[in-house]
């Protein structure tokens, strides 16, 4: 064995990153932790309240409702965008100008800022002047996202599908492009059906990028704020008030800093926990294979 000399100077090399992370993430997070265990009445006076805010948030029906809506929203988003993204990636041309054209078209929605997407759909879906809303109204369908909760949900979901399915498509397409032709030729020789080709060649090769796609789409949809805020403002009523919208109302609208801080920490832990669950489940087979 080679003897390595212990050199404590190496810590200095880590110092810049350490400071950067400390100021950008750890310190703000600690402030939030600080707020979450105290009460304040202004004048910079704080009183220790322990876990009281956490208990309040965890027992409040307002939080339960928002969490329920958020889980339902992310669930629907994943259930639509992942299969749809895979399907589009599979149907895209493999080479030639068609492939380039599709890639550009797919990338377009991703380049538009969140609040612009919200504004586009807010106008597009209006029953009086919007192309979509007006057309639906003309067809005799009762569609008004400012009054009808179902219409509001449908609008927000379609908007997210339009905005983010491309991400799944692009990731899956990259995964598919990495499969050598020989795999398809071998499958032909083996007499594999279209479904078997997908199940045993394309899907396994896409799995790694799919993991990334699912994690990104889960986290982003679970933290969604701007687009529904612009389109529905959380309404009608509270029907599209997702966790982040609720949190902002609490922190900035009502200025309940303590409960809002506790809310933030619980929110953060839920995202972390669910991401970990997705990751563990989706890499279970690789772990089994010892990879």
């Amino acid at each position: 064995m080679m003897q390595k000399k212990l050199n404590q100077k190496a810590w200095f090399l880590v110092l810049p990153v350490f400071l950067l992370v400390a100021f950008s993430a750890v310190l703000p997070l600690m402030t939030v932790v600080n707020y979450s265990v105290q009460d304040s009445f202004g004048n910079n006076e704080f009183y220790w309240v322990g876990a009281e805010w956490f208990e309040e948030i965890l027992n409040s029906s307002r939080f339960h409702d928002a969490l329920g809506r958020q889980l339902l929203f992310s669930g629907i988003i994943l259930a639509i965008e992942v299969p749809l993204g895979i399907w589009i990636a599979l149907s895209m041309p493999k080479k030639g100008w068609g492939a380039s054209l599709c890639l550009v078209l797919m990338a377009l929605p991703l380049l538009i800022p969140w609040n612009v997407v919200g504004t586009i759909w807010q106008i597009f879906a209006r029953a009086d002047i919007g192309l979509l809303g007006h057309t639906l109204a003309a067809m005799g369908i009762d569609y008004n996202y400012t009054q009808n909760a179902t219409a509001a949900w449908v609008t927000v979901i379609i908007m997210d599908v339009w905005h983010w399915t491309s991400l799944v498509v692009l990731l899956c397409y990259a995964g598919l492009s990495s499969i050598p032709d020989a795999f398809y030729q071998a499958a032909k020789i083996d007499g594999a059906s279209r479904w078997a080709v997908f199940r045993f060649i394309q899907f396994p090769k896409m799995q790694r990028v799919l993991l990334i796609a699912v994690l990104l789409r889960f986290m982003d949809s679970f933290m969604i704020y701007t687009e529904p805020f612009v389109v529905t403002g959380g309404g009608p009523g509270n029907s599209t008030t997702f966790l982040s919208i609720d949190l902002v109302k609490m922190a900035i609208g009502q200025f309940d800093l303590g409960p809002a801080a506790a809310f933030s920490l619980i929110y953060f832990l839920i995202v972390l926990l669910l991401s970990w669950v997705f990751y563990t489940v989706m890499t279970a087979r690789d772990a089994e294979a010892g990879q």
Partner: peptide, 14 residues
Amino acid sequence: IAQVFQFPVIYDTM
């Protein structure tokens, strides 16, 4: 026909 390709083709998950 049996054909063996330049790069080994096997079904990874099996």
